[in-house]
Design a protein around this nucleic acid. Structure first.
Lengths: 206, 206
DNA sequence: GGTCATTCGTGACCACGGTCATCTACAGGG
DNA sequence: CCCTGTAGATGACCGTGGTCACGAATGACC
């Protein structure tokens, strides 16, 4: 931690960290719903009210965690310019990487994903993460069009949404079943094959 | 109502009906979240506890309503055998019809859809509706394959899931924006065009 | 060090979804 | 018409997420 901060700032960061890790521990132990804010506060050694000074709602913890995971993802993927392979390869790799991250903590990931989606759909708050991810996918699709891998004139916006939709539902279905064998990979590859073929990529069927 | 029922049975049905319509009214007036069970009970002229004799949880109302809407949908669509046009046409028509139903009451539909999906994903309870709908889509896709409209050897399971995914996310996105102009129709047509082309249907692009 | 403003911690408090022991009123038999 | 067993109505009660008025701790300035 940056030592150039006042005692106050340092303590604030430290408390936030305590709350977050207490919460994550409990979520892993008993699940999100079964964990009460009071328990989290107790384990973090603060009062319940203090929790809400740091996170406006219980589920803000999930957003925060999601952002961390997203940052980790981008870290592991490295700078965009250095990605190799066709756009189709890149899209597939991106999503397989997401799958890897999710597989590390399936139960919590499931809650994170579903609860964030819910809030996004209900417009409960501006959720920058979704837009950011959407931009990334759109960029990859556009790259494919520019390189002539996907058909010129492709509606990049809708194509990207379709790719995301295919991925999202597969991921959720996978987690629903408790993420057992990697049937998951085949499922997403089959769907992507259909889409890429629909986008004019030759030689992708079944 | 069947008059051959005892007073008790009739009253039970009548009370359930009162609760349901009171709830729907309130949901339309103030939205699902802003409506408390106590309010519903009050308007239905019963005690709060009575509500839970009829519906195990507040959101069971949404399931019940969803089932009604689904029944209405199948009613309006008529018997499967009489559907005309290509499989692709039939799929598109099915989803446009769903869109019509949703458009009649966008706000409540949004809540219904999202909350039901949430419970489905979290496996909170067996949700027969989703499976039923999935079977229907699968059937239409299979029909397309058998007729030679889609490529032989198509993975019907995954193709159907892809169609559903495309539709579902478009629908939600549409409702998110408050379901204004029918940009919705174009969006779903574009996505379907990609998918159908990916499935080997000739002459579907952009 | 003394004074003041600000920020942060706190726990009593509220509204809500959901439970449950208790009571009510009806069906059915005599 | 009365008695009794039972389905169903009820509202006090609980645990939870979230609020808020208050007070303590801290930093800034003299």
């Amino acid at each position: 931690m940056n030592p150039m901060l006042g005692r106050r700032e340092r303590k604030k960061l430290e408390v936030e960290q305590r709350i977050r890790s207490a919460a994550l521990e409990l979520f892993r132990e008993k699940g999100y719903d079964a964990t009460s804010v009071e328990e989290i506060a107790e384990r973090a050694d603060v009062a319940k009210g203090t929790f809400f000074n740091y996170f406006p709602r219980k589920d803000a913890l999930l957003s925060a965690q999601a952002e961390d995971v997203a940052a980790e993802l981008m870290e592991e993927l490295g700078p965009l310019d250095e990605w190799t392979g066709t756009a189709a390869d890149q899209l597939l790799r991106l999503f397989l990487k997401v799958g890897d991250l999710v597989a590390r903590d399936p139960e919590l990931s499931k809650t994170m994903l579903i609860e964030n989606m819910r809030r996004f759909w209900l417009c409960t708050e501006a959720e920058p993460l979704e837009r950011e991810f959407n931009e990334l996918v759109k960029l990859l699709v556009r790259r494919g069009v520019e390189r002539g891998e996907f058909e010129a004139g492709t509606d990049v916006e809708q194509a990207a949404k379709l790719v995301e939709a295919a991925y999202f539902t597969t991921l959720v279905e996978w987690m629903r079943r408790g993420a057992p064998g990697t049937e998951y990979r085949r499922d997403i590859e089959v769907k992507f094959a259909i889409i890429f073929r629909g986008l004019g990529l030759p030689g992708a069927a079944t």
